Amino acid sequence: MTGPLPEFALGIGWRPPICGLIAQLDGLDFCEVVVESLPVTGAPAAPTVVVPRELAALRDSGTLVVPHGVSLSLGGAEPVDRGRVERLARCAETLAAPLVSEHIAFVRAGGLEAGHLLPVPRTAEALAVLVANITRTQDGIGVPLAVENIAALFEWPDNEMTESEFLTEIVERTGVYLLLDIANVYANARNRGRDPLAELRRLPTERIAYCHIAGGAESEGRYHDTHRHPIPAQVLELVAEFVRDHPVPLMLERDGDYPPDDELLDELDAISNAAARAPITATARAVLR
Rank of each mutant, 00 (worst) to 15 (best):
G221D: 03
A132G: 01
G13W: 11
R108S: 14
S101V: 03
V85N: 07
V239N: 00
V185A: 04
I208Y: 02
L88R: 01
I150D: 13
G256W: 12
L88M: 15
G256Q: 08
I150P: 08
A278V: 11
E165Y: 10
P67F: 11
E78N: 04
P279A: 05
A282D: 09
N191S: 07
P157E: 06
E7M: 02
L252C: 05
T63P: 01
L153K: 02
C91F: 06
V131N: 05
L58Y: 04
P16F: 12
A146K: 05
E36F: 06
L72S: 05
N191E: 11
G175T: 09
P39N: 12
P249Y: 03
H68M: 06
A77P: 00
A214C: 13
P259H: 06
P39R: 13
A151H: 05
P52W: 10
F242K: 01
R244F: 02
R84A: 15
I104Y: 04
G193S: 07
A109I: 01
V171H: 11
P79Q: 09
V239I: 06
R84N: 08
L197P: 03
P47E: 12
R192Y: 09
L25C: 01
T174W: 12
V40Q: 15
L252S: 02
S61Y: 02
R90T: 07
L38D: 10
E78K: 09
T63D: 01
P196L: 05
L118C: 05
A189M: 09
N191Y: 10
A23S: 15
N184W: 05
E93K: 15
V129T: 14
A105P: 07
M161N: 00
T168A: 11
A146F: 04
G13T: 07
R207M: 06
P260H: 08
R82F: 13
A128L: 07
A276V: 12
A274V: 04
